[in-house]
Design a protein around this nucleic acid. Sequence first.
DNA 1: TCGTTAATGCAAATGATTTTGCTTTAATTA
DNA 2: TAATTAAAGCAAAATCATTTGCATTAACGA
Lengths: 198, 198
Amino acid sequence: MLWYNQIMETLSVKNKRTGGRSAHVMASIRAAVEELIKEVGRERITIPMVAERAGVNPTSIYRRWEDLPTLINDIATYRLDPTRTLPNTGDLRKDLTGWANELVAHYRKPVNAALLRGGASVAGETDSDCLRNRRGEVEVLLGQGNSEGFTAEQVMDHVVAPIVYRVIFHPWDLDDRTAEKLVADLFSLHRAELFSSL
Amino acid sequence: MLWYNQIMETLSVKNKRTGGRSAHVMASIRAAVEELIKEVGRERITIPMVAERAGVNPTSIYRRWEDLPTLINDIATYRLDPTRTLPNTGDLRKDLTGWANELVAHYRKPVNAALLRGGASVAGETDSDCLRNRRGEVEVLLGQGNSEGFTAEQVMDHVVAPIVYRVIFHPWDLDDRTAEKLVADLFSLHRAELFSSL
DNA sequence: TCGTTAATGCAAATGATTTTGCTTTAATTA
DNA sequence: TAATTAAAGCAAAATCATTTGCATTAACGA
């Protein structure tokens, strides 16, 4: 649960009055967007819809945000906390599995999946790769202790990419065995390379 | 270049008249959506915009497609000619590599990448998976001759997903060795399973 | 080629979204 | 607590999207 002033701090457009009513309006709008993203999907949300669900006047939304994409990106900016501690048991396989499981759990929440799809729709040109933090984390995981010869690219290709693919296109195929299976695939791939170099 | 009747066959909503004018209207709409996706981005396209650019009456779009997400998904889904012949040399590895190379070449064109991102933003609900044809093709490739024990899921996870991930988030990492490398990974993964079962 | 009628075009009507001017509420500061 | 004024509410107007009924075009089978 975020406090109202924390909610206010997450917005791209600032108010001068950050307490009481304003914060309550923001919280209602955010809750409404999250509900609606789950119920009707990002593409079918309208501003009047959000206003009605939030019990707020549409004008209040129009005056604060330029347009709907801005609103949704603002509100759905629920991120994996970049300061959280990563698994570090000394066992790379365990760490990767634990980390990938966090990723899966995160993106099984419809709001976060919707955000990723939203990120996808504006990716490619700018440097706004909304997964760049994940690659950074992979590098940390590989760096702490024995990387067993894996590169971040391999982990991104064979663990992160399949998860992302499922989140975006096949969310119903994302279950709590996905992460373990993919890490197992990664490790068998690696062993194969060891064998073939014998 | 698709023929008009091939374009018609790709739509989710069918016409009884598939030639001449209808096909021309479809082709114009498709071209308009492609241009606009590049120019203004998925988020700011409207149906009247598409109609004007296509030189077509908005009514023609409204009557055929339920709404904009459906239209975009339709166009994004069928950009690769679904009737093209797939590689069939008898050598699965060669076939997969050739097919994956087609995929890479296709998505290295900016229009197609933009369409995939557009598809991503409307994915996740219903069965509107704009990559479902790719999975179908994988099943065909595995079905013709020796599948060497691969499942479509494995190919989707370790060949298609990494390509899609790069297309959407890292297009600059998509080069003409990507496909071959990923198929090589897939095969080494498979060999690993053989080894580990010894 | 002709006749049928599906598909498109056109225009008016409807419905929804967005903007605007003004009023009210209440957060903040003194 | 009172004064100030930012932010929210309200309602009417303007804009834009969508639907609808009918006229026109042309695809396709006879």
